[in-house]
Design a binder for these strands. Structure first.
Lengths: 138, 138
DNA sequence: TTATTTACTTGCGTTTTGCAATTGAAATGG
DNA sequence: CCATTTCAATTGCAAAACGCAAGTAAATAA
C-alpha cells in the first residue's frame, strides 16, 4: 500500500526506508554496540530521544524485522528487544560509518582500540561484536 | 552555535548529522555512482526529490564539505557540484549498505556485476568508483 | 527582442517531531 | 491487602520540517 514500486528498488533507497532516519540508527547502535535491551535503557542515550519517538521507532523496527519484542518471564512489565540476524548484519555498516567519522570529525569519541581492531582484523571484530550481542539476549 | 557538545561526539551521531536524512544519501548516490553533476540531473531521480529540498540539501552538503559548487565557464547559468574527498570516502559506506540491502530486499535492483565485484575485489572496486567520479568532474 | 533554459526561491497546507503530562498494567512496600 | 512505585508506553499540543505548485532572475538561444 505505502510503496507503489516494490519491484526494482535501489539498495540505497531500501536501506533508507528501513533505517534512514535520525533515530533508528541510534537505537540500533545502542542495541548492538552498547548492550542495551530495555526501553528504559534506550531512553538514556545522550542524544535524548523522546519517548513517543522511541516507541514509534521500535514498532517500525519490529515491523521491518530488525527486532523481536519479548516480555521478561520473571517480570511481565519489562520488555526486551532482541536483535534479528537482519539487524546484526548491519554491524559492518555501523563500523564503516564509524571509520569515516573518525577521519572527518576532529571531535570524535570513537573508542581507539575498537577502530584499531577494525583496521587490523575487521572480519574478526565483526564476528565478535555480533556474537557478543547474541549472547546478551538469551 | 547549533551543536553544544562539539567534544566527544559518537561517530554514528556525527554521520547522522552530516548525511542522516532521507535525501542527502540519495543525492550522494546520484553524484557518486550515477555520474550526475547538475541540479537538473539531480532533480530526475526516481525517488522524486522536491526542488526546495534539493536546494537546501546541496547548501548543507556544501557547508559540511561534501561538495563544491562551481559554475560552468562556457555557460554561466549552469552549476555543477564537485565531490570532495570527504564525500568520495563514503563510497565504502554506500557499498556496504548495498551489500546489506541485496541480502534482505527481495526486490533489490542492485547491479549484480557490481555486487559480485564488491565481493571479489572490494578495494579495487572502491578505488575504481572513486576514480571514475573524480574523472567526471574536471 | 522575445522565448527558453537553468537554478533556484517563495508561499502555503500537511506531516513529522519534540516536549510534557498522563495512562494502565504489573510489581513492590508497608 | 491497599497504596505506591516502576515500566512501557500513549496522548495532546506547539514547533519544525516537508511536499507541492507557482514564481523569479540571470544567461543563452531563436
Amino acid at each position: 500500500m505505502s510503496d507503489l514500486k516494490l519491484e526494482n528498488r535501489c539498495p540505497i533507497d531500501y536501506a533508507l526506508e528501513v533505517f534512514g532516519d535520525r533515530w533508528t540508527l541510534i537505537v540500533l547502535r545502542d542495541l548492538m554496540l552498547s548492550g542495551k535491551r530495555h526501553y528504559r535503557e534506550l531512553m538514556t542515550s545522550k542524544e535524548g530521544i523522546a519517548t513517543n519517538i522511541l516507541a514509534s521507532r521500535l514498532k517500525k523496527m519490529e515491523a521491518d524485522g530488525l527486532v523481536i519484542r519479548k516480555h521478561k518471564p520473571e517480570d511481565k512489565r519489562q520488555v526486551f528487544y532482541e536483535l534479528t540476524d537482519k539487524a546484526l548484519d548491519l554491524v559492518p555498516v555501523l563500523l564503516e560509518i564509524s571509520r569515516w567519522s573518525v577521519i572527518y570529525d576532529k571531535h570524535t569519541a570513537a573508542p581507539p582500540e575498537l577502530m584499531r581492531r577494525y583496521q587490523e582484523e575487521p572480519q574478526q571484530l565483526i564476528a565478535d561484536l555480533q556474537e557478543a550481542a547474541r549472547v546478551r539476549q538469551t
